[in-house]
């Protein structure tokens, strides 16, 4: 068997692929954060809790309403996105004139409260959610077994990321959004309802997190802590990619997934730390992030 740096090649390829899969989640989550930060200037620390709510909503739809995975994929982003809209109107919109720190504190606190409520209601050991029958099974790639569901996650994430990027960079609506980011009063003067656009953008970012939650439900156990572990890494991804940069967060998400995957082979103990080491280096060399504008 061919070895690469003392690691059998099949194992290494397998890890690269797994890294890409985890990267898909990072990309999807950081994309939502980047969209929200780009327009609202809010560092949305509730994102992890909203990801978790997405997974729970999928479980509730299945258990209580008998609606399967595909319905969940359609309905959950709408439902959770709507809770985001309510949240933005009631609370977050009051903080736009204040320092970033206030938004961070509010969303962080909300995240803790939501997580606590779910833990109180559903316990901490998690709920079962099965992979939908259409996506069960695995492909034998020779060097590894690739579960069909994981392949689906990568494809779904890529499509979502691409669609979001196109929406923001190539459409008229996206142009309004970008313009409002630069100079909101001017855009409003042209007759665009900026506050409503801001609200909907927050809802959209939250919906992205919720879709991530639905996609994650069959792989990870549906439990109240599931967002907490992910959110810290995702913030590092956003910082490395450049706050508010859409393309940056997508590329960095996938890239860091791969870096993390490789670390798990060579020195597994450091796999949770490696992303933060990279973050520190990037911040020193390019404080605005790899794709950010200083």
């Amino acid at each position: 068997m061919d070895d690469i740096f003392g690691i059998p090649a099949p194992l290494l390829f397998g890890q690269l692929l797994l890294g890409l899969i985890n990267g898909a989640f990072y990309a999807m989550m950081s994309l939502g954060l980047a969209v929200i930060f780009g327009l609202l200037n809010i560092i949305n620390f509730t994102h992890g809790a909203q990801f978790m709510m997405g997974a729970f909503a999928a479980w509730m739809l299945l258990e209580w309403a008998g609606l399967n995975y595909w319905w969940a994929l359609l309905l959950v982003p709408i439902i959770i996105g709507f809770t985001g809209v309510v949240l933005e109107r009631l609370m977050i919109s009051r903080l736009y004139k204040l320092d970033h720190l206030y938004g961070l504190l509010l969303t962080f606190g909300l995240g803790l409260i939501i997580e606590g409520v779910f833990r109180n209601q559903f316990g901490s050991s998690g709920l079962p959610y099965r992979i939908p029958p259409e996506l069960q099974g695995a492909w034998d790639l020779g060097f590894m077994f690739l579960p069909i569901y994981r392949g689906w996650v990568v494809i779904a994430a890529l499509v979502l990321c691409l669609a979001t990027w196109l929406l923001i960079e190539k459409t008229r609506l996206g142009a309004y959004l970008r313009a409002a980011t630069e100079n909101a009063p001017l855009v409003q003067a042209f007759g665009v309802n900026v506050p409503r656009m801001v609200t909907l953008t927050y809802g959209f970012g939250v919906a992205l997190a919720a879709i991530g939650g639905v996609l994650a439900a069959p792989i990870y156990s549906v439990n109240p802590q599931m967002g907490t572990n992910l959110i810290i890494v995702v913030f590092a991804v956003v910082v490395i990619g450049g706050m508010g940069s859409i393309l940056g967060s997508i590329i960095t998400g996938f890239g860091l997934g791969i870096v993390e995957g490789l670390t798990k082979v060579f020195y597994p103990e450091a796999s949770a730390t490696v992303i933060f080491v990279i973050m520190a280096i990037v911040l020193l060399a390019r404080p605005a992030g790899l794709f950010g504008r200083a």
Binding site: Q15, G19, I21, M226, I232, K264, V265, S271
Partner: peptide, 18 residues
């Protein structure tokens, strides 16, 4: 044996493959 960071790990596929 492989030791994974606790409690910051949710994806174990890499360790399972090893």
């Amino acid at each position: 044996a492989t030791r994974y960071p606790f409690p910051a790990t949710t994806d174990f596929s890499s360790f399972l493959l090893q």
